[in-house]
């Protein structure tokens, strides 16, 4: 029993809601930043901003990949475990080849190469099982999530894998150094975001993601290789996880069963806050970037104030996610014909 659609939908209101849909995440980010400044002027300090962006880079890079998966109507729950697993293998491998190649560029390159191969492979497995096996992405990636998590626990024998100090010294700059005053992870984040933006909005691949997420049948009848495109989104997700892991490993120099826990949910949250539709068909890279920064910013602001306990970080994040989506949905509804 549907309700009567009322008539008062002047074009004026339509444009207002569309604008809100596009700019909503940005407006929210500015509001949050203003709040941060009011709470503690140190918030705007260059050190703090750089630190915040660097931290948001991990989730941000992963979330850019997730934007493709979700836009094409999929979902990847395995990214957090995948990151932990890749980090674990990287550390073992680099420690292993240390004797042969010494603590130099070669050793680190081997680690980085392995990371990319594992990322592509893991993404490919998620994609191929989802498409060829005709199994829901939720189920497949729930499975691989458990597998990678247990594999890293097994590799670490329940403990922690630690990167050799000598290698760490060589590898450190990837996380801690800056280029033109901007930390390297932020550069990587920016690179991934710009590449993602171009791919999603200006290439066939991106257009196909939109079409498949909206209606797979139409895509199939438009002579699009649906399975191929969907698999490719998971591969891209894998590459993003791999890149995030490459800049994460030098930060702590270790991996354990606790590495990357709940990253998948943070990445999905960033995507959703950014205005991508969870059931697919519409995706926005810059929204995702803003979403990722917002999630980190909340933690950062709570760190700068005593008014709210830092332990309530999750609560604030949760509220913001729900409010953001509520506002978007209200906008969607108004925009309907």
């Amino acid at each position: 029993m549907s309700n009567v659609v009322p008539e008062h939908k002047s074009s004026k209101r339509g444009t207002v809601s569309i604008d809100f849909k596009t700019w909503g995440p940005f407006v929210a980010l500015v509001v949050l930043a203003l709040l941060g400044v009011l709470i503690n002027p140190a918030f705007l300090g260059l050190d703090n901003l750089a630190n915040m962006l660097t931290r948001s880079a991990f989730i941000g890079i992963i979330a850019v990949g997730a934007t493709f998966v979700i836009t094409a109507g999929g979902l990847d729950l395995s990214v957090g475990s995948m990151a932990a697993f890749i980090a674990g293998v990287m550390i073992i491998l680099m420690n292993g080849v240390l004797e042969q190649f010494g603590p130099g560029l070669v050793t680190v390159s081997i680690g980085v190469g392995a990371s990319l191969i594992l990322g592509v492979g893991a993404g490919f497995i998620n994609g191929i099982v989802t498409t060829k096996g005709r199994i829901e992405a939720f189920i497949v990636t729930l499975g691989t999530m458990g597998i990678y998590r247990s594999l890293v626990t097994y590799l670490a024998d329940g403990g922690t894998l630690t990167l050799d100090w000598n290698v760490r010294d060589v590898y450190r700059p990837v996380y801690y150094d800056s280029l033109l005053g901007i930390p390297i992870p932020v550069w990587v984040f920016l690179f991934v975001a710009v590449t993602g933006y171009i791919l999603l909005n200006y290439t066939r691949f991106g257009r196909y993601c939109f079409a498949i997420g909206s209606n797979e049948k139409v895509a199939e009848y438009s002579a699009i290789h649906v399975d191929r495109v969907k698999t490719l989104t998971y591969v891209m997700q894998g590459v993003c996880v791999s890149l995030a892991t490459i800049i994460y490993v030098p930060r702590l120099g270790s991996a354990s069963a606790a590495t990357g826990v709940l990253w998948e949910l943070e990445a999905i949250a960033a995507v959703i806050i950014g205005g991508t539709v969870l059931k697919g068909g519409h995706g926005r890279i810059w929204g995702t970037v803003v979403g990722a920064i917002m999630l980190t910013m909340i933690g950062n602001i709570l760190n700068l104030t005593d008014a709210i306990s830092n332990y309530l970080n999750g609560t604030v994040q949760g509220i913001i996610i729900i409010v953001a989506v509520y506002l978007q949905r209200a906008a969607w509804r108004k925009g309907e014909p």
Binding site: F210, A211, S214, V218, A219, A223, G281
Partner: peptide, 21 residues
């Protein structure tokens, strides 16, 4: 509507979907 056109997409992207190349 079920297989021919993506209803919630714009007209131009629908037109070019088959021959986007």
């Amino acid at each position: 509507k079920g297989k021919g056109l993506v209803l919630n997409m714009g007209l131009r992207p629908n037109l070019t979907l088959m021959n986007l190349r």
